[in-house]
Amino acid sequence: MTDELIGELIDTVAWVLIEDGRILCARPRGRDVFYIPGGKREAGESDEQTLLREVAEELTVALVPATVAPVGVYEAIDGAVRVRMSCYRADYRGTLVASSEIAELDWFGYGDRSRVPPVDQLLFDELHAAGHLAH
């Protein structure tokens, strides 16, 4: 498929938080699918600025800027759009709490791979292959 047939590119940034072999996922209100926390950048924002803002908005914690480190960039077709997700690890301060825009938080293992979108599944595959994500 050529880029012209795929359509819009959705460029996102995501926070990869793994604890005890499970990755934090969030389900936005009104949606059935879980996502890696993060979102789309606003005009003029860098990846780090987007990451800090989105995580604070969704999970009410503050990422520590000095600890932000790249995990990888993943790209997949999801319906009629191409989604690019730039992933980062970072330490945080505060208590993870779903904000008003998030209906639910959960910790997923590799066995939950089918519950996330195609681009997130690529991250799951890589984390599992590297031994970071339990089944």
Rank of each mutant, 00 (worst) to 15 (best):
D120I: 01
Y88T: 06
R93S: 13
A130I: 01
G111V: 08
W15L: 02
K40L: 15
E58A: 11
D112M: 07
D32Y: 03
A76R: 14
P70Q: 13
V71I: 06
S86V: 09
W107G: 07
A129Q: 12
A62F: 15
M1R: 15
C25P: 01
T12Q: 02
L17V: 07
T12K: 01
V71Y: 14
D20E: 08
G72H: 15
R53I: 11
D20T: 09
G79K: 08
E42C: 12
I36Q: 01
D112I: 00
V81N: 13
L24Q: 04
I18P: 01
A90M: 13
D3L: 09
R22I: 02
G111M: 11
V71K: 15
V73K: 04
L51K: 02
V81G: 05
G111S: 07
R41M: 05
A69D: 04
C87Q: 05
S46P: 05
A62Q: 14
I36P: 00
A80R: 07
E126K: 12
D11W: 04
D91R: 10
D125M: 03
A66P: 02
E48C: 14
R93C: 09
S100V: 05
R29P: 00
R27D: 03
V64Q: 14
V83S: 09
W107Q: 04
D78N: 14
E57K: 10
V55H: 08
D120M: 01
I23L: 10
D106W: 11
P65Y: 15
P117W: 02
T67K: 11
R84E: 11
E104G: 14
A134R: 00
P118G: 05
P65E: 15
A76N: 13
G30H: 04
I77V: 07
L59H: 11
W15P: 00
L24V: 08
T2H: 05
T2N: 09
M1Y: 12
R22S: 02
D78Y: 08
L122V: 12
R89C: 05
G21T: 04
D125Y: 02
I6H: 02
T95G: 13
D112E: 13
Y35V: 08
A90C: 07
T2D: 12
R115N: 03
I36N: 01
L96Q: 04
E54Q: 14
S100T: 06
S114E: 06
I18A: 09
I77G: 01
I77P: 00
V68K: 10
G79Y: 07
A62C: 14
T60Q: 11
F34Y: 06
G21N: 06
S46L: 12
Y35C: 06
Q121I: 01
L9I: 15
D112Q: 15
G44V: 14
A56L: 14
Y88Q: 09
V97T: 12
S46M: 06
V119I: 06
D20S: 11
T60Y: 09
A66W: 08
P37Q: 12
Q121C: 03
A76K: 10
I36H: 02
Y88S: 10
S46R: 05
R113N: 10
L105Y: 02
L52D: 01
V61H: 05
P65F: 11
A90K: 03
V83C: 15
R27T: 03
A103H: 03
H128Q: 06
I6C: 02
